[in-house]
Design a protein around this nucleic acid. Sequence first.
DNA 1: TTGTAAGCGTTATCAC
DNA 2: GTGATAACGCTTACAA
Lengths: 385, 385
Amino acid sequence: MTGSSPDRAGRATRRKRRPSGAVTIKEIAALSQVSSATVTRALQGHPRVRPETRARVERAAEALGYRPNHAARTLATGASKTIGLLLPSTGDRYWGEVVEGIEDAADDAGYSVLLATSHGDAARSRRMLDLLLSKRVDGMVIAARREVEEALTHAELPVALVRVGPDAELDDGDVEAVRTLPDDRLAGWLEGRRLGDLAPGVIGFDDVSAATLAVEHLVGLGHRRLAFVGAGNRRSAALRVAGFRQSTGRAGVESAAVVASSDRLADSHAAALDLLGAPERPTGIVAYDDMVALGAIRAARTLGLRVPEQVSVVGIDDIDVAAFLEPPLTTVRQPKREIGRLAAIALFEALGSGTPSPGRALRGELIVRGSTAPPPGHDAADEAR
Amino acid sequence: MTGSSPDRAGRATRRKRRPSGAVTIKEIAALSQVSSATVTRALQGHPRVRPETRARVERAAEALGYRPNHAARTLATGASKTIGLLLPSTGDRYWGEVVEGIEDAADDAGYSVLLATSHGDAARSRRMLDLLLSKRVDGMVIAARREVEEALTHAELPVALVRVGPDAELDDGDVEAVRTLPDDRLAGWLEGRRLGDLAPGVIGFDDVSAATLAVEHLVGLGHRRLAFVGAGNRRSAALRVAGFRQSTGRAGVESAAVVASSDRLADSHAAALDLLGAPERPTGIVAYDDMVALGAIRAARTLGLRVPEQVSVVGIDDIDVAAFLEPPLTTVRQPKREIGRLAAIALFEALGSGTPSPGRALRGELIVRGSTAPPPGHDAADEAR
DNA sequence: TTGTAAGCGTTATCAC
DNA sequence: GTGATAACGCTTACAA
């Protein structure tokens, strides 16, 4: 065979791939006089590496400014150490705080977070789900909303998954039942449905107990005529209504009305206007959330009613300006960060064990501020009962 | 040589790597009777592929439920189609909206977003920067804050980078100058510094013009005694003060005071209390941001002054409850989503061209609501001047 | 137009 | 305790 065979020539001219320019373990290997396998072992804290070898390798890595290439690692190990996050949006305060909790827990566990938003659209959800899967996330946290659930049923995702959010786990039939069931049967029905327990892999807010907390606060102050404003057709609204009806029934309040309205300010303002304009108006209002509470307060003001002296209002959520409103809003705080944290932790557990973690509904916390007080004509002595 | 040589036996028993289980181009290649190279070409819309081959490959991919492995692609191409995002936090409203804009633009351009938070800590910033680099992001958008800037100076990042945020591009010396420079020299100084133009690769908010917009609105309503509340030591605060002083000077208002306070409600409340308690109190207040405006409104109320009848207040930012406050807040809206969008777009341009994009300061928009009105004793005729 | 095979940077198996 | 080297799944230069 001739030295100048076409084969040899071809090899020689063949332009090798442009390297990324970044430092690789090969260079560390060369500098520290070991094989690349040893470099990996040394850098990963493998037990069977001679201490001085490890030291030499670490020094070389440091000197060269080595940064492991995660893409290569992912390819080799099959794990990306990244989780995906699919949310309706990140702009609104609710999700922003949840994300913070997730990011926090992920960081503690050595994971990164890849973001995707559905914008409430099923097709987009599906596309994003595919994208996250393509990027080989090890698991995902998704906001449990109808359009995403739909996308999920067609998917059968090959990764661990935790659902999170306020609107989880109550189907439409139940929503209807909550509204129409007679008072005396509601409590039993709620128990039977075990609404406090969420399905496996779902982390959410305990809507029922949140409303209960609000009612108990008002009843404790002496209120006997209560109303719930803001019963939209969301699952969370139905659950809060259920909690409201259940606890008012238990406390034997004289009158407990439920007034529908969306969570938009104008709607809740109008609804509260009707409610407070009636002759037998309630002295205490439990609002679906803080925005609805704002509408109710405004309605009271429109009617010349003072809050909290003549009407008490309690919200649910604790938005960040709640404390700065006039009056500062009494509300049931939703632990958003904590929900995020627990969702991420549940995901990592599932990742480890291979089985979905049990669902959890986190209880809110009553924050008493200035929008609630004893009802008119109620003297302090009664309060101590 | 014997058929049962140790070498052969070794090869035979050698357990190959566990495959990820996902569908690969090889399987598509097998099913569609072409080589894997052709599969790649077909799937990527490479021009020189026979249409029927392409169709066959696409059908096979579809049938098998193929999802490209981005880790492998990243390794092969050197581009991850992912950008990193380093922010102080995602929980607060400001960043949440910026993220939304970034995510949006990234999605349009075919990029994903990897999230990291600095929590305002330089060491953590550095760690996160390294992590993002390790994950081989193609570029990054980072919040331009002091601790991150510090981390950056020691880094010399090998990727394209855009900085975004309200606190950019004014150093401490300038902050001092803005406060102390006599009125008549301020305008010239501002021009000379070209504060409206941000450094290359920085997308921000035009703080100077925001304050100007607020002042001009108040002056247009007939106000002649103005004050700025909330001059903290942030760069954005200094720029807003500069804008305030510059425009009040230009308009020849009788008195233009600047009162320092943090952006916390209690502080701004106290500061405004002093200001409005004085005999020669201003009739119009420009607040550093909406929270400070809230504090000012509360202070006015504390003193029995009605807003807007006796005192007008204009904020900067337009937080989401601004419209629902009592009174609804007049403010200069900060285009957060847009800032995010432009930052991402600037990054992609830089990615394409290799050169940093020019900086941009986005102007706010005045939103007139209920917290501003002509000053007391000002009749409607004057307004038409 | 299509096939072959090298190469991206890492991990992990086997042999010594 | 260390070294060779196959493999992860994909892209791409070159040959055909």
